[in-house]
């Protein structure tokens, strides 16, 4: 098995110590940071995303894989700035006002990071103004909003309206258990993702459009 294959498999298996050790080894051997990132860490999270989407694995397995990915990211992060590796894009991510459930949002964040995006996680219970402030501060390509409760998803529409003129430069992606494509269309969101793996696909489409 190649070194990158070892890192990839260790991410999939959620073995943080092994990911860290082999990432350090690859760096010491002079392997390009972009290759470690894309062929090792991201490749592993891609497999996790597909398996999660297909109900072959569940949230605990994603959490443990993301933890392993972060162990590798921590090793290469200081080297990325000088490596010529560019982030795919910036995503501001949060749950909407009233919603304290963050598991779905966190999974999306992990998968987006695992796909090469820089994620600005603004946490839970964000009023429309908090999303706007984060957009002004971080200049993202995408805003991701999550709601796990039927009772809070109505705040998504208010947030989209509140972004006002920024909507020209920022795409809005939404998700969460009660959210549907129909609802996304109704409130004028640019994309709906039913799960964390699809969120990555949709983000890729949004930044390419």
């Amino acid at each position: 098995m190649s070194d990158m294959q070892v890192i990839k498999e260790a991410v999939i298996g959620g073995n943080a110590a092994k990911v860290k050790e082999n990432t350090e080894k690859a760096v010491a051997e002079g392997v390009d940071v972009g290759i470690i990132l894309n062929d090792g860490l991201i490749a592993g999270m891609n497999v996790i995303g597909v398996r999660f989407k297909n109900n072959e694995i569940y949230v605990p397995e994603v959490l443990i894989a993301a933890r392993a990915m972060h162990a590798g990211m921590a090793v290469i992060k200081p080297l990325i700035a000088n490596s010529g590796v560019r982030e795919k894009g910036v995503v501001v991510l949060g749950t909407v006002k009233g919603d304290l459930h963050d598991i779905g949002k966190n999974l999306v964040g992990m998968m987006l990071e695992g796909a090469g995006y820089r994620v600005i996680d603004i946490g839970v219970d964000n009023a429309p103004d908090k999303f706007l402030k984060a957009v002004q501060e971080h200049n993202p390509q995408i805003v991701g909003m999550s709601a796990l409760l039927t009772t809070t998803m109505s705040h998504m529409k208010a947030t989209i309206e509140h972004l006002g003129a920024y909507r020209d430069s920022v795409k809005v992606m939404i998700g969460g258990a009660p959210v549907t494509q129909k609802f996304a269309d109704e409130i004028g969101a640019d994309a709906y993702a039913p799960d964390a793996a699809t969120a990555v696909e949709k983000a890729n489409q949004l930044v390419a459009s």
Binding site: P60, I64, R67, N106
Partner: peptide, 11 residues
């Protein structure tokens, strides 16, 4: 906490 709990189980 849901995430720490799921990690406890997964670990």
């Amino acid at each position: 906490g849901l995430e720490p709990f799921l990690l406890d189980i997964a670990m």
